[in-house]
Simulated scan of single mutants.
Amino acid sequence: MFSILIVEDDLKLAQLLQTHLEKYGYRAEVLREFDRVIERFESVRPDLVLLDVQLPYYDGYYWCRRIREVSNCPVLFISARDGKMEQIMALEHGADDYLAKPFDYEWVMAKIKSQLRRAYGSYAPGRQERIVECAGLALYPERLELTLAGRAVELSHKEGLLIEALMDNSSKVVSRDWLLDKLWDGQPIVDDNTLTVNVTRIRKKLAELGIEEALETVRGAGYRLRPIWRTQP
């Protein structure tokens, strides 16, 4: 049974979400101590977090960053703020999706199922771990880790999908439309900039591995990952 932590200071909304989640067979915990989000997170160890932006003490962006220090579990923001900048900020701080209030509860359940499927659906007893390789760069999709020459960085779920698509098509131009469909499974997204945000995050992760300027923006076409690092000493 998947467990979900609800970090929402509107108690009525939090309880409604809890009721719907439990109806679908999830174990749902409602957090009530908003100065102890990380402590509660580490105690519950949820498979997914529903996180409001406006919270007492610190906002949801802060807590999302803190969660990303210890976990790659899916984080879905739920907020009455529906502006483009708020949603871009959520992605930049490590969120996997953003749901603006008021929302349809069935749509929320569909989003949760989709994120859980992406995060954990590849696991199966006795299954060999999958590895995607490109010129010495190795991606471990199930554990969301990217490695090169003994160095490793952790990825979010969207980052993992994006770098896998680029590695699978190494040296080829991959269109923005194709990547948008790959990352969001044909679902409408808020703004085309959400892909740009994730590309920027991938560039930073590659830089941590010592890979610079390998991920190109091809104006009017898309992106290309050139394995130039294999020629470097």
Rank of each mutant, 00 (worst) to 15 (best):
L11Q: 10
A14G: 08
L16I: 12
L17Q: 13
Y26N: 00
V37Q: 01
E42H: 11
S43V: 08
D47E: 14
L48V: 01
L50H: 04
L51C: 09
L51F: 06
Q54K: 14
G60K: 05
G60T: 00
W63F: 03
R66I: 03
I67A: 11
E69V: 02
R81E: 10
M85F: 11
Q87C: 09
Q87N: 12
M89T: 08
M89F: 13
H93R: 09
D96Y: 10
Y98V: 07
Y98H: 03
L99Y: 12
P102N: 05
Y105W: 04
E106H: 04
M109L: 14
I112N: 00
R117Y: 05
Y120P: 01
R127K: 15
I131E: 02
L137D: 01
L139M: 11
L144F: 12
E145D: 02
L146P: 02
G150Y: 05
R151P: 00
A152R: 05
V153H: 01
H157Y: 10
K158E: 10
L162S: 08
S171Y: 11
D177A: 15
P188D: 07
I189L: 05
D191G: 03
D192F: 08
N193I: 07
T196N: 08
T200S: 09
I202F: 09
R203F: 06
E208V: 03
G210Y: 01
E212K: 11
L215E: 09
G222P: 11
Y223P: 04
Y223I: 06
